[in-house]
Design a binder for these strands. Structure first.
Length: 582
DNA sequence: ATAGGGTTAG
């Protein structure tokens, strides 16, 4: 308690600390002053010094400082753990936690929440479990802050069951706990559970905030749930201030639900755009196949917006890949490196290979892979290459891509169909057989395709050849009739896109009753003439369905929007926004 | 005098 006797002296040292801010040299000068004036036991001073050093990201100096302090107290430890977690030094956060244990300092909910968050950032499930035990033994198991941190931690470690259990056992569920649980489901791809929980939250009378809605909007994007998304937009308009975060979520939601016009409206309504809102708008256009529009926005951004970052260029290159804008994409790629000094990462290379490959420039795509400096081509690169080889029927390069893909991810079930297709094309039936055997041996099945459609605020799900719907007979009869009308105006089934091992008869059946066709027939039967049909498909839409839907848009005179695994297809008058380029 | 749990783009 020495410092109470000489407040003047300390005040000036403290002011020096404030002046030093996060600059490391001035901080070290004040440190010297502290030593010279003999105030090395003033914990408030040392706490400010050490957290400033940590915030200045001088982590080695921070560690040295801690070990030079004779009796750090609980406050110093929890501040330090908090700051190190916040500045992305989770390992140091754990080291400080251990040091806190050794020093036998008193625990606090602040120290626990921070160290749990550090474990969450590391996805360190085992360590987090141990700390959870420590929490309970220290009597902090009942603390609402610590419980919320645990919910978030278990969610980030994909342990949603445990997260839910901690959440359920909370005597009082705080807003933050609800938000953690909802975002936990959303981040783990369980969008329907996130939405169910949101309704529960609303019904239990807990006030939600913009953080809740950001997660729920993401869940809407995943499911293509445009009606809940619109409801949230209305709610925000009348109750909340639209900040850039929530605006980004709205743009993204509309974009991923295929409503480009609404996305643009939100974008235009913003007073202040940042790099994230610009990037979202570019990627919305790109994802929906409007490559030219995406480039228009990119151009506006370069004129009036902040400098594009690495993620902006992923959006730009991907828009070029999906829009067939090869020379524009190549220019953007060069500009990224030369004008913006950004180093291309794996995702940029994937988009480049995708872009060149789709355009049929297979040798250039292969050359790009070989020219990648310091980056080892990952599975995504070879998948893009393989897809392009299949599209343009280049067997030689296709086999090279397939071999590389098999070498990198031999276990991945999603690759087998594509790989065996290319070997079949190359006439290497022994390898086709081998791949098939591997699939059977490992119990790997083709991912089950399904399509969903929303009618009267209710979502219906169909799988291939689905007969579970009570009106199945009517749906199939209508679908058959529809396909007959399409045939009359020139449609012929493209059966080669079905997996080769099916018998011919099965192929035709499989094509005719693909989930997206059933969902589409159901939607056309159930909705009025002017409305847009919106379908979400979990896999990529197949070639035959793509052709068929173009014809269906003609014979029914309807607008049809299909979101597949990668992008959107807007069908109207026999034309798709992807220009058959996907 | 010392810090402050959850959320944001491909």
């Amino acid at each position: 308690m020495v410092y109470r006797n000489a407040p003047q002296q300390h005040l000036s040292l403290y002011q020096f600390l404030l002046l030093a801010g996060r600059r490391i040299k001035p901080l070290q000068q004040v440190h010297a002053q502290i030593i010279l004036s003999g105030k090395t036991s003033s914990l408030p001073l040392l706490t400010k010094l050490i957290t400033s050093a940590c915030a200045a990201e001088a982590i080695i100096y921070t560690r040295q400082l801690l070990f030079s302090i004779p009796n750090p107290d609980s406050f110093l430890f929890s501040s330090l753990i908090k700051t190190s977690t916040k500045h992305n030094y989770p390992v140091d956060s754990l080291i400080f936690y251990r040091h806190m244990l050794v020093c036998n300092a008193e625990w606090s909910n602040h120290a626990f929440t921070a160290v749990i968050k550090a474990c969450a950032n590391l996805s360190a499930l085992g360590l987090g479990r141990i700390i959870h035990c420590h929490v309970i033994v220290s009597g902090y198991g009942v603390d609402l802050f610590v419980q919320a941190a645990l919910v978030s931690f278990y969610s980030k470690c994909n342990e949603l069951g445990v997260a839910q259990k901690v959440f359920d056992e909370m005597p009082q569920r705080t807003l933050v706990a609800w938000n953690s649980m909802i975002s936990g489901y959303e981040q783990n791809g369980l969008a329907d559970k996130a939405i169910t929980l949101f309704y529960k939250m609303r019904d239990s009378g807990v006030e939600f905030d913009s953080v809740t809605l950001v997660s729920v909007l993401s869940a809407c994007s995943q499911l293509g749930d445009l009606s809940l998304g619109c409801w949230i937009h209305e709610y925000i308009r009348s109750n909340l201030h639209v900040n850039t975060t929530i605006a980004t979520s709205l743009i993204n939601m509309y974009g991923r639900c295929g409503d480009v016009i609404k996305a643009r409206e939100v974008f235009n309504s913003l007073n202040q755009q940042n790099v994230v809102t610009w990037t979202s708008m570019i990627s919305t256009y790109g994802m929906n196949g409007y490559g030219k529009k995406a480039m228009e926005i990119f151009h506006l951004m370069k004129l009036h917006g902040p400098p594009p970052n690495s993620i902006t260029f992923i959006a730009v290159l991907s828009a070029c890949a999906h829009g067939g804008l090869v020379s524009e994409g190549q220019l953007a790629y060069t500009s990224m490196i030369q004008d913006y000094k950004l180093v291309p990462k794996m995702e940029h290379h994937v988009s480049m290979v995708d872009m060149l490959g789709r355009a049929g420039l297979l040798n250039k795509a292969y050359q790009h892979i070989q020219d990648m400096n310091h980056v080892k081509p990952g599975a995504a690169i070879w998948t893009a290459m393989l897809g392009a080889c299949k599209m343009h029927k280049n067997v030689n390069l296709g086999v090279i891509a397939a071999d590389n893909l098999l070498a990198i991810e031999p276990q991945h079930p999603g690759h087998y169909v594509l790989i065996s297709n290319i070997y079949a094309m190359a006439g290497q039936m022994d390898r086709v057989e081998m791949i098939r055997n591997v699939m059977i041996r490992k119990g790997l099945k083709k991912q089950v395709g399904y399509a969903t459609i929303e009618v009267d605020h209710k979502t219906y799900l169909f799988t291939m050849g689905d007969k579970s719907h009570p009106e199945t007979v009517a749906i199939y009869r209508y679908l058959d009739e529809l396909m007959e009308r399409c045939r009359e105006v020139g449609y012929t089934p493209a059966s080669e896109s079905v997996m080769h091992e099916l018998e011919e008869e099965e192929r035709v059946y499989a094509l005719r009753y693909h989930s997206e066709k059933i969902a589409l027939a159901f939607g056309l039967l159930k909705t009025g003439h002017g409305s847009i049909i919106r379908i979400v498909k979990n896999l990529r839409v197949c070639e035959d369905c793509h052709i068929a839907i173009k014809f269906i848009s003609v014979v029914t005179k309807r607008k049809i929007v299909v979101r597949d695994k990668l992008r959107f297809h807007h069908f109207e008058n026999g034309i798709c926004s992807c220009l058959d380029y996907w």
